[in-house]
Design a protein around this nucleic acid. Structure first.
Length: 576
RNA sequence: CGGGGCGUGGCUCAGCCUGGUUAGAGCGCCUGGUUCGGGACCAGGAGGUCGGUGGUUCAAAUCCACUCGCCCCGACCA
């Protein structure tokens, strides 16, 4: 393609509304334009990049025997009412009515549609297993779209669904996806990590998220550099850092002391001169109307995911101030477990074995000292805290690392949730009815590009992996008014195309600086520069990522470049 | 949904607090010329009902009210 004919609206300055790197660069480089909050148009460059990503995804999905389909984006309400998710999804679902006043929605995901197809057509155990997938636009009315393409209201997703006779079959489908996902992200040039993820309360038994470390990410991951442990912060477990002060010895009994105006953990620490680790933090939560008192070490944060799991998956919320007062007789800031009788009390494991700590007295303006768990109050022990900086790995004891990450893929054992609720059954070998077990597996197409941009951005733009860049090579004549340079550039471009390379010819009547800057900005991984050295029969091959260039003879340029690019693809090839 | 910020040529912004000629700059765009190895220079030119509605005023980009849109933090995210 010839740049002079293309629509690649690059911008010299960062767009005002963009905050994260990938958003700024994708807009500046002319990949995307915003239409509304969380809704973007994908221009030529984005579309080319997505096509390449999709191709990789498709090849790897096909390789595990998955079958591609394309399902409707517009769904009847009845379908979602059957699975129960019509109500569960709430405002996240785009809903509309047709002319006959029938309720419809735009698909957020396709478990329902896939299951509906399966139950109509799958009759015998002999037809299983099946893996079906599609690459489809999904709609979610996000409460807050943000960060460019990272969280949007309309996006491309590869979603696949597996149907198996039993859990062992599901394991196989899950493992196939796990390996396919690793291959996909590797081929797309991402540095990623597969983390254990929260699998939800409903039927899910195993789940992994594929994460790319990036500050622009919205998730937190916990990693152990030593043993490879990796988990989403929601689910991650750790050994707590030791308390900063030793507990007082002795069989002491709880003793109230006045703490006027002292409410927060930090204030209590300051007031008593003892660190936050010497305190018991008491939180009042509500699980389906029932109060729950949650106890943590003062410096720890509650993981609501873990708490909900500990309560059997019930939804939870923080108690309102008037509820706390009603149940415990004091305001937040003076609450504690001592003397609490008719309330579920859950305590985090980091408090186990501690002695003579400080907590609220359930009397405004007072705290208790010398409070010992299991002596002065009883609680059910659970892992309830979020991993904190300084925590150690439960497997190897090494220090854990935490960081933000972009979720590019998620694989998930669904279990029987949809097959059971929607009546999917096949006949087994003995004539019995079998409800197939399902899995669900997603990949965010746009997020792969975002993650790559975040990973490989520099001052001048993006330096995309060759496999997902919109072009593999750009041929840049330095001086348009030099007929020899132009002729050589055209010839190189033609040869590159003939050699099967995805080439772009920058034939614009621009100064060289403009062409170089634009090429760097849009992230084409290789450039052939045709300039002065053409007189000596030489041109330059420039590598975007390393910013290195070297001279080659004109006639060998395409051969050398083709080999360089082949090598680049080899380096992205999974070795397994 | 709570908190904060921003809407002025295509883009990035100034002007607004303290109302008052034809509303500015840089970039981009168009014409002509000179240039040509990292976002050139000279000359000329086009392009804006200042997000919208209502109000205050002799007079509103500027003050007030409402409203729409966008961004950020938080809440939320099978």
């Amino acid at each position: 393609m010839r740049w002079s004919q293309l629509f690649i609206p690059t911008l010299r300055e960062d767009p005002a509304e963009a905050e994260v790197v990938s958003h700024k660069l994708l807009v500046r480089a002319g990949y995307i334009r915003q239409l509304a909050a969380g809704i973007y148009s994908y221009l030529l460059l984005a579309q080319r990049s997505f096509n390449k990503i999709v191709r990789v995804v498709r090849e790897e999905m096909d390789a595990i025997g998955a079958q591609e389909m394309l399902l409707p984006a517009l769904h009847p309400a009845e379908l979602w009412q059957e699975s129960g998710r019509w109500d569960v999804m709430g405002d996240d679902m785009f809903r509309l009515k047709d002319r006959g006043d029938r309720q419809l929605c735009l698909g957020m995901t396709h478990e329902e549609v896939m299951t509906a197809i399966a139950r109509g057509e799958l009759r015998s155990y002999k037809q299983l297993p099946q893996i079906w997938y599609q690459i489809q636009t999904k709609f979610r009315d996000e409460p807050r779209p943000r960060s460019g393409l990272i969280r949007v209201r309309q996006f491309l997703m590869k979603d696949s669904y597996s149907f198996d006779l039993d859990a062992a079959g599901l394991d196989i489908a899950y493992q196939k996806h796990y390996r396919a996902y690793c291959r996909i992200f590797q081929r797309c040039g991402l540095k990623f990590v597969a983390v254990e993820a929260h699998s939800g309360a409903m039927g899910g038994s195993q789940s992994h998220e594929f994460m790319v470390r990036a500050d622009a990410g919205e998730d937190w991951v916990v990693l152990c550099p030593h043993c490879g442990y990796a988990a989403n912060l929601e689910k991650a477990v750790s050994l707590p850092s030791p308390p900063l002060a030793e507990d007082p010895e002795g069989e002491l009994t709880p003793e109230p002391f006045p703490t006027p105006g002292v409410r927060t953990i930090a204030e209590v620490a300051e007031f008593t001169g003892l660190p936050e680790t010497s305190q018991i933090k008491s939180l009042v939560m509500v699980a389906e109307g029932a109060p729950v008192l949650v106890l943590l070490r003062g410096d720890h944060q509650l993981s609501e995911t873990k708490l909900s799991e500990a309560l059997g998956g019930r939804p939870i919320r923080p108690a309102h101030p008037d509820e706390m007062r009603e149940w415990l007789g004091a305001d937040a800031g003076s609450l504690g477990p001592v003397g609490v009788a008719d309330m579920t009390i859950l305590a985090d494991l980091a408090l186990r074995g501690r002695r003579n700590m400080i907590c609220g007295a359930n009397r405004d303006g007072y705290h208790l000292r010398h409070v010992t768990p299991e002596e002065d109050f009883q609680a059910a022990w659970h892992d309830l805290r979020q991993v904190a900086p300084g925590d150690r790995c439960t497997r190897c004891g090494g220090p854990l690392d935490m960081g933000r990450a972009i979720e590019v893929g998620h694989i998930f054992k669904l279990g029987y949730k949809y097959s059971a609720s929607m009546g999917l059954r096949v006949t087994g070998p003995k004539g019995e009815e079998i409800t197939p077990i399902m899995g669900s597996y997603g990949i965010g197409i746009e997020r792969i590009l975002c993650a790559a941009v975040e990973l490989y951005a520099d001052e001048d733009g993006m330096a995309l992996p060759v496999s997902i860049a919109p072009f593999e090579v750009i041929v840049t004549p330095v001086n348009n008014s030099d007929p020899e340079q132009m002729a050589a550039a055209r010839s190189l471009y033609d040869k590159a195309r003939a050699a099967g390379l995805d080439a772009l010819l920058d034939d614009r009547d621009e100064r060289p600086g403009v062409k170089f800057k634009d090429a760097d900005l849009i992230g084409v991984p290789y450039r052939i520069t045709v300039g002065k050295k053409l007189a000596g029969g030489r041109v330059e091959i420039y590598e975007r990522r390393s910013r290195q260039s070297h001279e080659v003879e004109l006639d060998r340029a395409v051969t050398v470049l083709a080999e360089t690019i082949r090598e680049a693809y080899r380096n992205l090839q999974p070795r397994d």
